Amino acid sequence: MAVNGDIRAGVVDVHAHWLPRELLALPPGNPFGGMNDRDGELFLGNIPLSFPTAAMTDIDVIVADTLKAGLGARVVSAPPFAFPVHTPSEADDYVAAYNEQLADAVSRTDGTLVGLGLVRLDDMAAARRELTRLAGAEGVAGVAVPPVVQGRSYDRGVMREVLGIAAELGLSVLVHPMQLPRPEWDHHYLVNLIGNPVETTTAVASVLLGGVLEELPDLRICFVHGGGCAPSLIGRWRHGWRSRDDVHRGSSRPPAESFTRLYFDTITHDPEVLKLLRTHASPDRILCGSDYPFDMGQPDPVGFVLDSGIDVGTLEANGRRFLGVNVIDGSR
C-alpha cells in the first residue's frame, strides 16, 4: 500500500525529526523532565541540544531547511525521547495527539514532508488501533520505533506482532535508538557514540536471527545510523548460525541473506563504513539520512552519499520504495 498523498521528486531523507511545541513535555513517565525552549534554543531537561527550537518544532523552518539541503522530500518522526515506552498505558492521549498533529502538519507541505507516527509496543489492541489510524492518514507512511524496550526486541512478543500489523497495513517502519543509559557509558557521550549503534545492532540481530523476514516478506523496515555495528558483525553471525543450534533455531535463512532485505540509512560519518554497509546490503535498500536537526546528524546528507558513489536516481528510487510513495509529476 502506498502512503496517502504524493511527495516531491528528488532525494528522500528518511531520517529527520519533528515535535510540536504542545508536546515538548514528552509522554507520561519520561525520565528526562521534558523538552523546553530557552531563548530559542531547545533543551532536554537541563541539557542543551545545540540547535534552535524552531528546527524541531516549526514545520516552515523544516521545509526551508529541507529545500536548502537539496532534498526532494524529508521524512519526519518524533525524537526518540518521545517514544511512549516508560509508562505506555498512560500514553494513549500523547500518541494520538502526536499522530493527529503529524498528519495535519505534513499534509500542508505540498509533498515536501512525509510523516512517521508513534505507536505503543506493549499492547496489541492499542497498537492496531493507532497503526490503522496512521494507515489512513494523509502524508503518513508508517511509524518510528525504538530498537529495544525493557530488554526485548523484535523477535518475540508484542514487538514482533507490531511488525506484523505494519506489514499487513503496508506501513514503513523506522527503527531509531533511544540512548539507553548504562553506567559504563556515563561520560564522553558514550551513551550516544557507543550506545546508539549497539541498540540498533541488537534489533538487527533479533530480526535476522528471529526469522522475522521469513514470516513477513513484505515488511519494509529501516535501521538508522547505517545499521550500527551490524555490517561488521555479519561474518560473526554467519559463523554462529552455522555452528550453533541456538543461533539458527529461529531462522531458516543465513543472516547475510536476510540482511539484503533490510533498509539502512547512510549516516555512518565515514565513507569507508558506508562502503562496508554497501558490501553487505542490497543496493536498492540504501537510503539517504540526515538525523536533522541533531548535532550527530549529517549536515550535507546528499553530498556525503554522492561522494560515496551512490547516484541521485538510486537514492530517490530507494526512498520511494521504502515509503511506498508516488512522486509528483513535473516537480523537478
Score class of each variant (00 low, 15 high):
V175F: 11
C229F: 15
S172E: 07
I194L: 10
G226W: 11
V173T: 08
H248P: 00
G170Q: 10
L233K: 05
V207L: 12
H248T: 01
H188F: 15
V212Q: 13
D155C: 00
L216T: 03
V207P: 03
L213N: 04
C229H: 10
L209C: 05
V204W: 15
E199W: 10
L209M: 00
G227A: 12
V175C: 13
V148N: 03
H187N: 05
M159G: 06
V198Y: 07
S206M: 08
P183Q: 11
T201I: 13
R160D: 08
H248R: 12
Y154C: 01
S232W: 14
G195K: 10
F223V: 03
R238Q: 15
V247P: 04
N192L: 09
S172V: 07
G226D: 09
G157K: 09
G226S: 08
L169R: 13
H225P: 05
V212D: 15
P177R: 14
L219M: 03
R152P: 00
R249A: 07
L219A: 03
M178D: 14
H239M: 02
G142Y: 03
I194V: 12
R220F: 05
D155R: 06
E199I: 06
L163Q: 11
D246C: 06
V198E: 04
E214Q: 15
A167K: 08
G170I: 07
V149C: 13
G227L: 13
A205P: 10
E214C: 11
H187M: 06
S153N: 01
V173W: 06
R152F: 00
L171K: 12
N196Q: 15
I165W: 04
L208V: 02
G157C: 13
G170Y: 12
G235C: 08
L169C: 09
S153T: 03
V207C: 07
C229D: 04
V198S: 08
V175I: 15
E161I: 04
V149K: 13
G240L: 05
W241V: 06
A144Y: 02
S153M: 02
T202G: 01
E215F: 13
V212W: 09
I194Q: 00
V140R: 06
L219N: 03
H187K: 11
T202N: 02
D155Y: 02
D218A: 14
I165Y: 07
G151F: 00
E168A: 10
I234K: 09
G164M: 11
P147G: 08
S243I: 01
S153F: 01
A205F: 07
D186V: 05
R152Y: 00
G170S: 07
M159K: 05
I234Y: 02
T200E: 14
V204T: 14
G211F: 06
L193Q: 01
E215N: 14
L219Q: 02
E168K: 10
C222M: 09
V143L: 06
P183H: 08
F223E: 00
E161M: 12
D218C: 04
G157L: 10
V207Q: 07
E184D: 05
Q150T: 07
E214R: 13
H188C: 10
W241Q: 02
V175Y: 11
G250C: 01
G151E: 02
D186A: 11
I234L: 12
G226P: 09
V175D: 13
R242H: 12
Y189G: 03
G227N: 09
G170F: 10
D218Q: 13
